[in-house]
Amino acid sequence: MAHKNFRKEDFAKIEGSDLYQVEFRKGEIGEGSNLVVERQTQNDEYENLQAEIRRHNDRIFICWSEPFNGRVIFDE
Score class of each variant (00 low, 15 high):
E52V: 12
N57K: 06
E23D: 12
I60V: 07
K13Q: 12
N48D: 15
E15A: 12
E15S: 09
Y20I: 01
S17P: 02
H3N: 11
E76L: 14
Y20D: 00
G30N: 10
S17A: 15
L49P: 00
E15C: 03
R59N: 14
D75Y: 08
K13Y: 02
F74D: 06
E47G: 00
E66G: 01
N69H: 11
V72T: 02
G30Y: 13
T41S: 05
Q21I: 06
I62T: 05
Y20T: 00
L35I: 06
R39L: 14
G30H: 10
N34E: 14
V36K: 08
D75A: 14
D58G: 04
R71L: 13
H56S: 06
L49D: 00
G32W: 14
V36A: 14
G27E: 08
G30L: 14
E15H: 02
N5E: 15
G16Y: 09
G27D: 14
I53D: 10
D75I: 13
A12W: 01
N48K: 08
Y46F: 15
V72Y: 07
G32S: 09
R55N: 03
K4N: 13
R7E: 12
A51I: 03
R71W: 10
G70E: 06
G32C: 15
E45D: 11
G32M: 12
V22D: 04
F6H: 03
V22T: 03
R59G: 11
E23G: 07
F11S: 00
N5W: 14
E9A: 08
L49I: 07
T41K: 00
N69A: 12
K13M: 10
S65R: 00
I73G: 01
K4H: 15
A2I: 01
K8C: 09
D75G: 05
A51C: 08
R54L: 15
E9C: 04
I53K: 05
Q50F: 12
E23V: 14
Q40N: 07
G16S: 10
G27T: 08
N5A: 15
I60K: 02
C63H: 09
I29V: 14
R71P: 01
F68P: 00
Q50E: 13
T41Q: 00
